[in-house]
């Protein structure tokens, strides 16, 4: 019911009544309660679905790459650019708050990279991806990677139209990350444990990390790798070859 005027009517109504506020204007006026029930993410989900159809019709595998800042997303893509892209045409869309450093790093590694500067936004949205890919020849690509803004919270809620969600966790971040950010890890098809070359230096507990991931994302494939040494990269390429996360 209408709680503001206690008129006891259902909410979708309009009526006249006088107010007795201190600023009383002495006039009668009407107000309307307008029921909407609009999902604020609906528009994004719609656009994501459009993206997904477009990607599928180009036979393209699209990865949404997610992690905290500094986990090694760009480093992994630089490696991918060198080892994989020569045989498998790849492009990258990269989201960053302010700079285009990542896109420059990727271009230097020889891959087409489009930067989305999000300004104050802390995540990418389907509309931004839609605009960015307009610059690409999707039919000529095999793989498109979207490097999301470094953030383990809100990008989880925004579907971009990807075929695979790849969540990355570096050994320096601690084994309990999956338990701290379950909604992000729950959404992953593939979990990458990165910077594995540093594992012993930081006394990384492999068993514990795998257990935590399993607990939150039991269906996800888990890979350990290092963009620096190349360890584990072959396995990743194998999964990409199949166009899926496991």
């Amino acid at each position: 019911m209408c709680l503001d005027c206690n008129c006891g009517q259902p909410q979708n109504h309009s009526h006249d009544h006088s107010h007795d506020h201190s600023h009383d204007h002495g006039k009668k006026h009407s107000h309307t309660h307008l029921q909407l029930g609009l999902d604020l993410l609906a528009r994004n989900n719609e656009l994501a679905q459009q993206n997904r159809q477009r990607f599928a019709s180009s036979g393209l595998t699209v990865i949404n790459l997610l992690s905290s800042p500094g986990s090694g997303k760009t480093a992994l893509l630089e490696r991918l650019a060198k080892d994989w892209a020569p045989q498998h045409p790849l492009a990258v869309v990269v989201g960053d708050l302010a700079t285009d450093n990542d896109a420059q790093r990727l271009r230097r590694a020889g891959v087409e990279a489009i930067q989305i500067t999000t300004g104050q936004a802390c995540h990418l949205e389907a509309a931004m991806v839609q605009r960015a890919v307009a610059e690409l020849q999707l039919n000529e690509l095999e793989l498109l990677v979207i490097e999301n803004v470094g953030n383990l919270v809100c990008p989880a809620a925004y579907d971009l139209g990807e075929s695979l969600r790849l969540v990355m966790l570096s050994v320096t971040e601690g084994e309990d990350k999956p338990l701290k950010y379950p909604s992000m890890f729950q959404s992953a098809d593939l979990v990458l444990i990165s910077k594995i070359d540093l594992a012993s230096a930081v006394e990384f507990n492999h068993g514990l990390a795998h257990r935590h991931i399993k607990q939150v994302a039991p269906a996800a494939t888990v890979l350990e790798l290092s963009a620096k040494t190349g360890a584990g990269m072959e396995q990743l390429y194998g999964l990409l070859q199949q166009g899926r996360g496991g």
Binding site: S30, T32, H33, L34, G37, D39
Partner: peptide, 12 residues
């Protein structure tokens, strides 16, 4: 628990 909804508006 994940709802983000604009439920209603009061207009005059």
């Amino acid at each position: 628990g994940r709802e983000l909804q604009l439920t209603s508006l009061e207009l005059s």
